[in-house]
Amino acid sequence: MSISTNLWVWLAAFLTLTIYSFLYKDNIMYKFAEHLFVGASVGWSIAIIWHLTVFQYIIDPIKEAVLNKDVLGFILVLVPTIIGLMYFSRFSRSKGWIARWPIAVTMGYYTGISITPSIETNIFKQVEGTILTSFNPGSLGSWWALLLLVGVVTTLFYFFFSVKHAGFVGRTAKVGIWFVMIAFGASFGYTVMARVSLLIGRIQFLLHDWLGIIK
């Protein structure tokens, strides 16, 4: 057993315990830790963005372009910077509409580059993986593939809004919602596992790094 002599470990342990004190009751120490966390993370992000984005991608290239009298390089940095700065017009009531321009540019750019890959990744590949190309009654894999196809088809039926859920469609959709619920159950179970893991991670920190009780 060897208790940590590192001041930062003690601070981290103190904050961990403060946050967990919420489980007993909301209290001022918890609120303190929560605000400290929000403040610290925002501050850290600003520092990172200031040094790694603003300096590295705006100020330094502009400086370099001016020193080298590189007109094209200067324009290539300046134009996107101005478009980006337009976001700040949101602070003005009368000029707020200007912010729509950078939003339009960003949306246009991302829509353009993402349509093809997302159709290929999320539709074609997924449909391809669901299609039953062969069936061998003796193999378990074939039955799983069939179950998958049934699950996808019936779930799609459930999310049809143009047809009344009655008769055949209604019954199929009902099977579909069973698949959806089982999927949610699996996801719920996984979430519980994840939350427990986070707790374990913190307790490992307290017992190993801080108190040195466990190896």
């Binding site: 890959p117 997302s118 990744t121 999320n122 997924q126 999927a183 996801s187 996984y190 979430t191 596992m193």
Partner: peptide, 30 residues
């Protein structure tokens, strides 16, 4: 997956939290 694999053909493997694991099984199966 969308860009590195679909666009540039680089294989991708994933390590994820249990919360997201259920979602990624769909991409593992294909």
């Amino acid at each position: 997956l969308q860009y590195a694999t679909t666009r540039y053909g680089v294989p991708v493997g994933v390590g994820t939290t249990a919360v997201s694991a259920a979602e990624y099984y769909a991409f593992l199966q294909t």
